[in-house]
Amino acid sequence: MTSPDPGVYISPAQTYQGVRGLSKAVHRIEAKIDGVLNETKNLRDDVADHEARIRALERARWPVPTIGVLAGVAGAATGAVSLFAR
């Protein structure tokens, strides 16, 4: 008959050290996650700022084609007036 395997004995001090190491690792991960969340907030702010700038540029751009059309109409009207004025 063989004797039973006594197994592995882990002392309370070793368990405590393991738990402390795990706690430190969790704190490091939490700090990294906080940093990533702060950076994504900054990115969201940047995207919102860029979106607002693009919208402002799009709104400011509409008069350019309108001015071109008005200049064309004015030129055609001037040409018509000079043609009929003869």
Rank of each mutant, 00 (worst) to 15 (best):
M1Q: 12
M1R: 13
T2G: 11
T2D: 15
P4D: 04
P4H: 02
P4F: 01
P4V: 03
P6F: 03
V8E: 07
V8K: 04
I10A: 08
S11G: 09
P12W: 06
Q14M: 13
T15Y: 05
T15R: 14
T15C: 09
Y16G: 06
Q17A: 15
G18V: 03
V19M: 14
R20Q: 12
R20D: 09
G21A: 14
G21D: 11
S23L: 14
K24N: 15
H27A: 14
H27M: 11
I29S: 08
K32R: 15
I33K: 10
G35C: 05
L37R: 04
N38T: 09
K41Q: 14
N42S: 03
L43N: 08
R44P: 00
R44M: 05
D45M: 07
D46C: 07
V47M: 03
V47T: 08
A48S: 07
A48W: 00
A48G: 03
E51W: 04
R53F: 10
I54T: 09
I54F: 03
R55L: 15
L57A: 12
L57I: 10
L57T: 04
R61T: 10
W62V: 15
P63W: 01
V64L: 15
V64F: 12
V64E: 09
T66Y: 11
L70K: 05
A71S: 04
G72N: 02
V73H: 02
V73K: 00
V73N: 01
A74C: 04
G75S: 02
A76Q: 02
A77W: 01
A80K: 02
A80Q: 02
V81T: 05
S82W: 04
S82I: 13
S82K: 09
A85C: 05
